[in-house]
């Protein structure tokens, strides 16, 4: 057989072009595997670290209704992380390796979670904007070429819509409340708007991996396309709340059929990615503490499982003997 690497890669690309999904045991280029391990695990880390800023407000939610909603949302984020870790594991990386990469700072997670949640309104802004931005990205990923990733995304997207509505309802409540409450909502929007736009990643011309990712149908749209889509959807929602977007350059462009918007502060983006955001250290410490302090639980569960299995074995042996 002539299965040299070039032929295999050509066949692989032909399968992708034909719209076929790639499953874990199929042959794939090493770079496709590595890109997926990196992207899926970082997506999983984002879900897990994403629980921290919101968990900050569970005990201080203003009503039982809000508390139930937020608890359920945070629990969903844990679930989303688990779906994604499982998808990444099908490519041959272990859960412990992924945790290790997160805890040592080798793997990244979405930079948005390195911003603090200073007021209750931030929980509204996160649900509305951060989950809103995530949905745009994740809806695209339901059609990604790697089967397990696409399936995890379908599951996640079904659940994510509640998160965004939960957030928007919080914002709506505040905007229809007292003057101070509306100011809280505006302040949260001011702080979360730009970081939300950064969630889509660098501009296309500064994103060297985009071309290959689009070719392999890992991404079906570019960062700038997704960002524009998010802005176009979100601006009317801010108008509905009676809030003002913190961007003086934001205005509807009739000719393009899109909103024009101001320059994103990419220096800030890269600072946060490199670990110098307001909460990077705090987030990572919360993660490593949870992992270290949970070690005895994991060990105890292993010891118990082993004991039970030995007990069962000896019972079986007795049955056979009698």
């Amino acid at each position: 057989m002539k299965n040299n690497i070039h032929d295999l890669e050509e066949k692989f690309q032909a399968r992708i072009d034909a719209g076929e999904k790639i499953e874990p045991k199929d042959w794939m280029p090493e770079k496709y595997r590595k890109t997926h391990i990196r992207q899926i695990s970082q997506h999983a880390h984002s879900e897990i670290v994403g629980m921290l800023p919101e968990g900050n407000w569970i005990t201080r939610a203003p009503s039982l209704r809000r508390k139930l909603g937020l608890l359920a949302k945070v629990q969903d984020e844990a679930g989303h992380g688990l779906y994604l870790y499982s998808a990444a594991e099908t490519l041959g990386i272990s859960r412990d390796q992924m945790f290790d990469q997160l805890h040592t700072g080798k793997a990244k997670y979405s930079s948005i979670f390195n911003y603090p949640t200073l007021s209750w309104a931030d929980i509204g802004a996160i649900g509305w904007l951060v989950d809103g931005a995530a949905i745009i990205n994740q809806v695209m990923l339901t059609r990604t070429s790697f089967g397990p990733y696409a399936r995890a995304m379908v599951r996640i997207c079904k659940e994510e819509s509640f998160h965004q509505r939960q957030g928007y309802e919080i914002m709506l409540g505040l905007c229809r409340g007292t003057e101070e409450q509306k100011e809280m909502a505006q302040d949260a929007l001011n702080r979360f708007w730009w970081p939300s736009l950064m969630m889509f990643g660098p501009k296309d011309e500064d994103s060297p991996n985009t071309e290959q990712s689009v070719k392999w149908k890992i991404k079906r749209k570019t960062n700038d396309e997704l960002r524009q889509e998010f802005i176009d959807i979100t601006v009317p929602q801010a108008d509905f709340l009676g809030l003002k977007m913190p961007d003086p350059d934001l205005k509807w462009n009739e000719e393009r059929g899109h909103y024009d918007f101001g320059e994103i502060d990419w220096d800030e983006f890269w600072q946060v990615v490199k670990g110098n955001g307001p909460c990077n250290k705090e987030r990572l410490k919360a993660r490593t503490d949870a992992w270290d302090e949970g070690a005895w639980v994991r060990d105890a569960a292993n010891a118990y499982a082993e004991k039970q299995s030995l007990k069962k074995q000896s019972e079986n042996n007795k049955k056979i003997a009698s």
């Binding site: 499982s86 399936r151 995890a152 599951r155 994991r298 569960a301 499982a305 039970q308 299995s309």
Partner: peptide, 11 residues
Amino acid sequence: VGSLHAADAEM
């Protein structure tokens, strides 16, 4: 539907 980690069948 997917997979997960657990110490034993019950978990």
